[in-house]
Amino acid sequence: MNQTEGRCDLHTHTRASDGMQSPADNVRRACEKGLSAVAITDHDTVAGVLEAMEEGGRCGINVVPGVEISTRAGGKDIHVLGYYVSCSDEKFLNRLADLRNTREERNVKMIAKLQELDVQITMEEVISGLGRELRPDESVGRPHMADVLVSKGYAKDMRDAFNRYLGEDAPAYVSVPRISPLEAIEWIREAGGTPVLAHPGIYGDDDLVREILEQAKPAGIEVFHSDHGKAEEERYQAMADEYALIVTAGSDYHGARQGVIFHGDIGSRCISVSVLEQLKRGSADN
């Protein structure tokens, strides 16, 4: 038996947001890795879910419809994953469209900041770098800007581009008004989904993580993530136990840029498919 049978990766991105692969490609890669299920969790859009589910039917793999919503709390960007959301809920789709508009506003301001730093790139170059037409329900993200920075020699790779220019503490970063984690969690629940706090270790502030868990009350927490080490996994597993939260795992796969997979490959962080029943009903086993 393949060691990954009965396992799922609950955090992957496609080119519907800032991933490099098509939704169908993600599903095929999950099949190749021997997974039983994979979630499509693009930023502020569910545009890739239908294609992924159709490919899942062909491959015989369970595709979990999902989304990753951008929020702001405690002076930091906080991401909330939503699983089994309705991809046809008009109110939810309109809300996601508003979030993408905010992302577009931020992108324009970041490009302007880069130009002020004498980094000569344009939004037209960023969109052109996609190699295809950008659909209305898709969005451009910082990794797309990083691609242009690398191709024009302003950074040596993706991580360097974020460290030098695009990361939260970097000179070209722009913070725009965003909804709170509580609002995102309410939206997900109203769309029939189950909210999970994404990659808490990235925020570098466990007091803030606890505050979000206590005030916004997500149903779960992403304990296992490509950017979590053993210490983080143990810490967030303990929090999951303390708050009776669903425990999830995800690679946060974005595909390969400049030959480097970002954050991790599909299947590099997995959990038993038994968690899917918890996500469907919105609560951990008692």
Rank of each mutant, 00 (worst) to 15 (best):
residue 2 N to P: 07
residue 12 T to R: 01
residue 18 D to C: 02
residue 19 G to A: 08
residue 19 G to L: 04
residue 20 M to K: 13
residue 21 Q to D: 15
residue 23 P to V: 05
residue 24 A to K: 07
residue 28 R to A: 08
residue 29 R to M: 14
residue 33 K to W: 05
residue 40 I to C: 03
residue 43 H to Q: 10
residue 45 T to W: 10
residue 47 A to W: 07
residue 55 E to A: 14
residue 56 G to M: 06
residue 59 C to K: 14
residue 60 G to V: 01
residue 66 G to H: 04
residue 67 V to Q: 03
residue 80 V to Q: 02
residue 81 L to T: 11
residue 83 Y to T: 10
residue 85 V to K: 01
residue 86 S to W: 07
residue 87 C to A: 12
residue 94 N to D: 12
residue 97 A to V: 14
residue 99 L to E: 14
residue 114 L to H: 04
residue 118 D to F: 09
residue 123 M to Q: 14
residue 123 M to G: 13
residue 124 E to V: 04
residue 126 V to W: 00
residue 140 V to Y: 00
residue 143 P to Y: 02
residue 146 A to E: 09
residue 152 K to T: 12
residue 154 Y to W: 03
residue 158 M to Y: 11
residue 159 R to M: 12
residue 165 Y to A: 05
residue 178 R to C: 06
residue 182 L to D: 10
residue 188 I to K: 05
residue 192 G to C: 13
residue 199 H to M: 12
residue 200 P to A: 09
residue 209 V to W: 03
residue 212 I to A: 09
residue 216 A to G: 06
residue 222 E to H: 10
residue 232 E to P: 01
residue 235 R to C: 07
residue 235 R to S: 13
residue 237 Q to L: 15
residue 245 L to T: 08
residue 247 V to S: 03
residue 252 D to K: 09
residue 257 R to Q: 12
residue 259 G to A: 10
residue 260 V to W: 04
residue 260 V to Y: 10
residue 261 I to T: 15
residue 264 G to W: 00
residue 279 L to K: 06
residue 286 N to T: 14
residue 286 N to P: 15
